[in-house]
Simulated assay, not measured.
Amino acid sequence: MRVSVIQMNQGSDKAANLDQARRLIEAAVESDRPGLVTLPETWTNLGGGRDSRRAAAEVLPPEGSGEAGGPAYEMLRGVARGHGIHVHGGSIIEDGGEKLFNTTVVFDPTGREIARYRKIHLFDITGPDGTGYRESALYGAGDRLVSFEAGGITFGCTICYDVRFAEEYLALRRLGAEAIFVPSNFTLQTGKDHWEVLLRARAIESQCWILAAASWGQYEERGAPRSVYGHSLVADPWGHVVAKVSDGTGWATARIDQAVTARVRRDMPVLEHRAARRVDLDSAAGRVDPEAAARPVAL
């Protein structure tokens, strides 16, 4: 299956963001003929503050109901049906009542929703420049792993900050994932140092393809400019970056080759080794002599 990762420069104007996403998807489909496209994190809104996020949020129809949703939900469904492709909707802002959710929805070529994932790990950090990010002040956290099948391939869902938690990717691998999505709004400061390193590490550890559509450029947050890194990419199960977008909006396309996945897993069966040598590491750490651990070791 050919997959295109779409890179956007969205802002706080939801209608303009929907138009940009539609145009980029249509250009990628016309140029590269992918069977699946994926968008960045919260591509319907970036910046503008709490009120702007609330205004962009959509109440999602019950899973499996086939009922109509909001403008972004229906745009994704229409693109999937219109082009006969799978659409992984990056993430949109879900109105969950008291809390919002950072939520992925996935549609098959008939426009049927086949997966929904809420971001588990919320971005509550202080950046290198002292800027604070408190996603949990507005968003609730998801509580379940999600995978789905498309074109004979099992895909796993994660979102942005999830990438720093390797155990989530290993859990998805155990669920059968062969490729894992990482739609993101990675900050410029963390992205330039950590983005590609983390994505390649998750690919190597899980032996899955990593499909990371990201936002690029500047946006405004409560009157102050902020920047996101972009550099959307596809990495193979060996950790090679096989397709990448540089600066600007655009897309990159790669073919998920299941023969590559099978070869990497056959030649280095780390999942089987984990199962055979599983150790309670917390308990093991408690059995270490602190004085012995502090002594230098000859290598």
Rank of each mutant, 00 (worst) to 15 (best):
A179V: 04
Y73C: 06
R134Q: 08
S136V: 01
L175P: 03
R144D: 14
R174A: 07
G69N: 12
T104G: 14
V106L: 15
D162V: 01
H86N: 05
T104W: 12
T104S: 15
V87C: 03
G66W: 01
R81F: 02
A177H: 02
G70A: 02
G78N: 04
E135L: 01
A72Y: 10
N185M: 06
Y133A: 04
E178A: 09
P62D: 07
H86K: 00
R112K: 14
P61M: 07
I159V: 15
P62V: 09
V59D: 10
I120E: 09
S91P: 03
I125E: 13
P183I: 12
A68H: 11
K99T: 09
P128Y: 02
R173F: 09
S184K: 03
S136H: 08
K192W: 07
I159H: 05
P183Y: 15
A179W: 04
D124A: 08
G152E: 05
G127D: 14
T104K: 10
D193T: 11
H194E: 13
H86C: 02
S147A: 05
G78I: 00
S147N: 05
E168I: 01
T190A: 15
E168Y: 02
V79M: 11
E149R: 09
G84Y: 02
G84P: 00
K192M: 10
R173G: 12
R54V: 02
V87S: 05
P109H: 10
R164Y: 12
D143V: 03
V146K: 02
V182N: 15
H83T: 04
L170N: 12
I114Y: 14
C157K: 02
T190L: 08
K119M: 13
R134G: 06
G132M: 03
T190R: 09
R54D: 12
E178R: 07
Y117A: 15
G140V: 00
V79P: 08
P61F: 04
D108I: 11
F165T: 03
Y169T: 02
H194A: 13
L145A: 12
G84K: 00
I153T: 12
L170A: 05
V163R: 07
